[in-house]
């Protein structure tokens, strides 16, 4: 018989057990992702779902951020008579930080929660068990496909958000400073470096992976009937947002270390 006394305290024990569980889940992902069956069809379907679900909100948010951020930055630059630097300033802010962060947070809310809810309800209605007893690996079919889809799609969405935000910014700049589209984008591309784009893509891949794996983990391990489904959806959003901020901070440290090395 197992010893049922807690090692530290019940809460801490559960915390560490949860942590170990989560690591085992991530480890299983990296063990199984390399081997067939690859389920390309399901991955594509998930990619489509992710894009389809988040595109309207991301377009709107990106556009508005572009306009508002430009508008709010103008007075400070105007003090130094440097409003011509607006495109450079905005493009750096958008590409380095705002684009990836905003996209990831929106996707965590829209995509992460729906992955959590979907897998959670599959778990509590025994659909995951049903796959297992018909000799289908549910981890492969559900977790790996969804996680790969978010990992690939978030960078694509980030590029899109960057573009939309810059267009928003351009409209504002165009009205106030009478800069043409080509001049605007020449300035944009002069101010962002290869490192900016490269690090933004890597960061987005990590964000995407986080959103997918957290949603899947929470859903796959949900319990307690229908109540558990709501909890899975909710906690996957909270958890992935939290992790995204931590990752953003880490990324900042790493990129700065490279940039000023």
């Amino acid at each position: 018989m197992k010893d049922k006394r807690p090692v530290l305290s019940k809460k801490l024990d559960n915390f560490f057990r949860g942590l170990a569980d989560a690591f085992a889940f991530v480890k299983r992902f990296f063990q199984e992702v390399w081997f067939p069956p690859y389920e390309f069809k399901e991955i594509l379907r998930q990619c489509y779902e992710i894009g389809y679900r988040s595109l309207p909100l991301i377009s709107l948010t990106g556009f508005i951020i572009g306009i508002v951020f430009t508008n709010q930055s103008r007075p400070s630059l105007a003090e130094f008579g440097a409003t011509s630097w607006l495109p450079a300033l905005i493009s750096i802010a958008v590409v380095r930080a705002l684009g990836p962060l905003v996209t990831a947070l929106i996707a965590a809310g829209k995509v992460g929660s729906s992955i959590g809810a979907e897998l959670g309800s599959m778990k509590v209605t025994e659909q995951i068990d049903a796959m297992e007893v018909s000799a289908i690996n549910p981890f492969k079919y559900l977790v790996i496909t969804r996680t790969l889809a978010t990992t690939f799609m978030i960078p694509v969405l980030v590029m899109y958000t960057d573009f939309v935000a810059l267009m928003g910014s351009f409209i504002n700049v165009n009205q106030n400073e009478l800069v043409s589209l080509s001049t605007f984008f020449v300035q944009v591309f002069e101010s962002i470096s290869f490192l900016d784009i490269f690090s933004s893509v890597i960061k987005s891949l990590v964000f995407g992976f986080t959103i997918g794996i957290v949603g899947c983990y929470k859903g796959y391990n949900s319990t307690k009937g229908t109540e558990g489904v709501g909890q899975a959806a909710n906690s996957s959003v909270v958890m992935s947002m939290f992790l995204i901020f931590i990752e953003e901070l880490l990324a900042l440290q790493i990129v700065n270390a490279i940039r000023y090395a």
Binding site: E126, D129, E132
Partner: peptide, 15 residues
């Protein structure tokens, strides 16, 4: 498992 059919209590159809 392939030789065993399991009809679940709540059907467990993939919805």
């Amino acid at each position: 498992r392939l030789k065993i059919g399991f009809a679940f209590q709540a059907s467990a159809l993939y919805d």
